[in-house]
Design a binder for these strands. Structure first.
Lengths: 316, 316
DNA sequence: CCCTCCTAGGTTACCGATAACTCAGAGAGG
DNA sequence: CCTCTCTGAGTTATCGGTAACCTAGGAGGG
């Protein structure tokens, strides 16, 4: 008990005892068993379950890196899950993760299955929903509105006098992803501004450079005359720019291009890409800090909007 | 005990009892407590500690995704750590992770501190060292030789008659990373082939598109005449190509370019990038399966070479 | 009919940290 | 000098799963 008290920084021991404990701990190389600690009292777990759609998306990787770094700094460990934009996979992972009795969950997904919500409720631990702001958060929500991002980009493009626009997205297996929300916001925004979404191409591929290249090729092959193309993300926009360059279309003179995400890949383009910058590291750090605050009983806002930034660039 | 036996698929119960247990488990929504299981017997843990240099590098993200997916499929959970190419950070993480008594560790780093090795030894669990093949693996090693990758690319470039070459890398904070090994292999390979590394530029930035762009600019500003440039990775090579395009240098006529990694970003280039393709998903899957085999007591090779593939491309 | 073996299922003890309780001794106050 | 309080430190019980052990009863063989 004295060792436990000393190591956890409590009270009830003298300075001499404290020193003796620390030296002995050092001598024998004692490492507290966190499994036992988490087992004894459920609230003592320092494990956090984090479930994201993919690890290979630059933006999610960045969010995860910030989450993990912040949790580690605050003394928590991250257990990861990947749900591939499928709510059943999220539920499967959650069932598994719940059996580890983590202190909290961080979920990045647009919607949860009924089973997921029931499971979360039965665990009773704090939950942070990140990435897309849901209308009715389960517990904590940290993110922004993808729909609004789409609307804002529509305003920027249409405001520049480009009325006949196209959209290129990628399913990557699922249409439940946040990109779909941006697409809907974009369409509504275009309609509001008196423009028209002349062409839409949603390829089956995983979002990425190639999907953007290929999607642009397919869409333009159908022969629509376009003033601008909005892409699901920057990587796709860069792929699209590569195709446009190949066919000799001048950007932004002949056609405008806009992406989303503010990804580093765009930094090498000769022109600055018109996009929406997402402060992924800030989002991850904030979400981790919010969860820890909640665990410590400190007051936390239920909903936190992470401000995204429309980057006008020079491709529109 | 009967419930435990049924759920873990053992013997010692009748079919009728089994059915009754399963229906009752379903009725009350019983979820086994893995913390308790891992606590009761140390060997029963299904937690795997995985430590990688970064989460935001496309290649490591891909390896991690494959590791995590394979472990999940085989009933294991992944606890992640990030060491930023610093062996002290790896040791700090390992000390923390060891207190969770994981079943095994997967480490992606070029070298471990003495404290790390001592800690690993004291835990006694299987360890897979991935990414770079060490000369003397601690337990299991799965990867390839970055040094040889550098030598091979030197042979390809010099074999194409390009004798005056440059190298552009990025420290990203640490020179202990595998990129440093490729650099050394490249230099040795160039010397063997009778060429000369005329210019070397190692920028302080994190490896990426911008580091490649900026590194190329800096290196060329020093005025060396070059036949080809070898980049630390494909993203840097793409950044370099962007700079070369900006100054009007033709590739490969005026100067050759080679990258490393076989990254998806290169798929949009008008020419196919000369590079070395790394089967990251295969590496991650294989490493996870090897660790699980070892945990199950099945025979496993201590050292597994994952074959990388030199992609001649058309930029040399 | 008895002995042995087998099977289905139950009982006990254990893992390590820690909440809650107990206790010894020192010091203070009357 | 006695009691009361406070402090440092020890003791007990607990969390849930499971290895190891135990037991009742049935089957089968001699």
């Amino acid at each position: 008990m004295t060792v436990s008290r000393v190591l956890r920084g409590g009270a009830g021991f003298s300075d001499a005892t404290r020193a003796r404990v620390l030296s002995e701990v050092d001598r024998v190389g004692y490492v507290p068993n966190r499994i036992a600690a988490a087992f004894g009292r459920a609230g003592a777990s320092t494990l956090i379950g984090v479930c994201v759609p993919r690890l290979t998306s630059p933006l999610f990787a960045s969010v995860l890196e910030a989450l993990n770094a912040t949790f580690a700094r605050l003394g928590y460990q991250t257990m990861i899950g990947v749900h591939n934009h499928a709510s059943e996979e999220e539920e499967t992972w959650l069932r598994m993760a719940a059996s580890w009795k983590p202190a909290a969950f961080v979920l990045a997904s647009r919607a949860h299955s009924a089973g997921t919500v029931k499971l979360l409720r039965s665990t009773g631990v704090p939950v942070a929903e990140i990435w897309n702001l849901t209308t009715k958060p389960y517990d904590l929500a940290i993110g922004f509105s993808h729909y609004d991002n789409g609307v804002e980009m529509a305003r920027l493009i249409l405001g520049a006098g480009r009325l006949r626009v196209g959209y290129v997205g990628a399913l990557g297996g699922q249409k439940t992803a946040a990109g779909h929300l941006r697409h809907m916001g974009f369409c509504d925004g275009v309609a509001d501004m008196g423009g028209k979404v002349v062409a839409t191409e949603i390829v089956e591929e995983t979002p990425g450079f190639y999907a953007g290249f290929y999607g642009t090729e397919t869409m333009l092959a159908r022969g629509a005359a376009l003033d601008a193309i909005y892409y699901q993300d920057d990587e796709m926009a860069i792929g699209g720019l590569a195709y446009l360059g190949k066919i000799g279309a001048r950007v932004p003179e002949d056609i405008g291009v806009a992406g989303w995400g503010g990804m580093e890949a765009a930094s090498i383009l000769p022109k600055r890409l018109t996009t929406t910058a997402i402060p992924t590291a800030r989002l991850g750090k904030f979400a981790a800090e919010a969860i820890v605050s909640r665990l410590r009983g400190d007051p936390v806002d239920d909903v936190t909007i992470i401000e995204t930034r429309l980057v006008p660039g020079s491709t529109i």
